[in-house]
Amino acid sequence: MSTPSREPRKGQIRQANEAAILRAAEQVFARTGFQGATMAEIAEVAGLPKANLHYYFGNKRDLYQAVLDGVLADWLDPTDALVPEADPREALTHYVRRKMALSRERPDASRVFANELLHGAPVVGQALRGHLRTMVAAKAAVIDGWIAAGRLPAIDSTHLFFSLWAMTQTYADFDVQIRAVLDRDTLTPEDHARAEAHVLGMVLKGCGLAG
């Protein structure tokens, strides 16, 4: 009688531990920055032994890189809706809602990335000049195709992405400022719904897709 393999179980444990470490690292890096963060603090937040962090990610620099890579991948994923055959209004609506959801559900991820950029992107700079630049060029070409086909008015397709990033990520990166103006300790679901409706309305109107 054969013994059931333990490999699937080990794989599940590894995935769960890595996910817990990455989420804890997002919190700590967002609060203290790379220099101020320690593997011991991240381990404490993750609820795992410090040795586990070194086992899965090697050192703090490698863990920081993994966090940034994950954030960028999650941010680029919603652009899959921007394809030539898509309806421009539906595609842009999907993109805005996904980006707003990421800012709402994982604000620390956005703050880690913003802090990296404010320090000159020493770790993620190559990805910005490579993968991100390539993606923006490809998706801007899709938008230019919509414009050429008369499905959108003439807009700067590349700068549209800069505006989209600014409008959606501000609710994570500048949460303190927004809460101060709204006199909130925490943004409510109603606040987030109002923000999403506002940003989406601005984008659709700016792209000639209102109504």
Results as ranks from 00 to 15, higher is better:
A37W: 03
G120E: 04
D175S: 11
M100V: 12
I178S: 02
D185Y: 10
G211N: 08
K10G: 09
A193V: 12
S110V: 13
R151E: 04
R111N: 01
Y64W: 08
A148G: 01
L164P: 02
L118A: 14
A197I: 01
F29T: 03
G145F: 04
P88R: 06
P88V: 03
E116P: 02
V123M: 12
E18D: 10
E196P: 00
G150I: 08
A101Y: 05
T134R: 15
A127Q: 10
R111V: 03
L117G: 09
D156G: 13
V203A: 05
T158Q: 15
A127F: 03
R111I: 02
W146G: 01
A19N: 12
F57D: 00
A73P: 01
N52I: 12
R97F: 03
H192I: 06
L187I: 05
V28K: 01
M1N: 10
F34I: 10
R89I: 13
D74K: 11
A148Q: 11
I13T: 13
D87I: 10
A24R: 02
D74T: 11
D80E: 15
A197T: 02
A148R: 09
Q169L: 14
P88A: 02
P107G: 09
A20V: 06
P107M: 09
G120A: 09
M100Y: 01
T38M: 04
V181M: 15
N52W: 11
V83C: 12
V112P: 00
V176C: 14
L128K: 05
L117Q: 12
D108A: 15
F34Q: 09
D87W: 05
A20Y: 03
L128H: 08
K99M: 15
G33F: 05
I21K: 07
D87A: 10
T134M: 15
Y56D: 05
D77H: 10
G36D: 11
R31P: 04
D175F: 06
R179W: 05
E26K: 12
G125A: 04
A140Q: 05
R194L: 15
G33T: 07
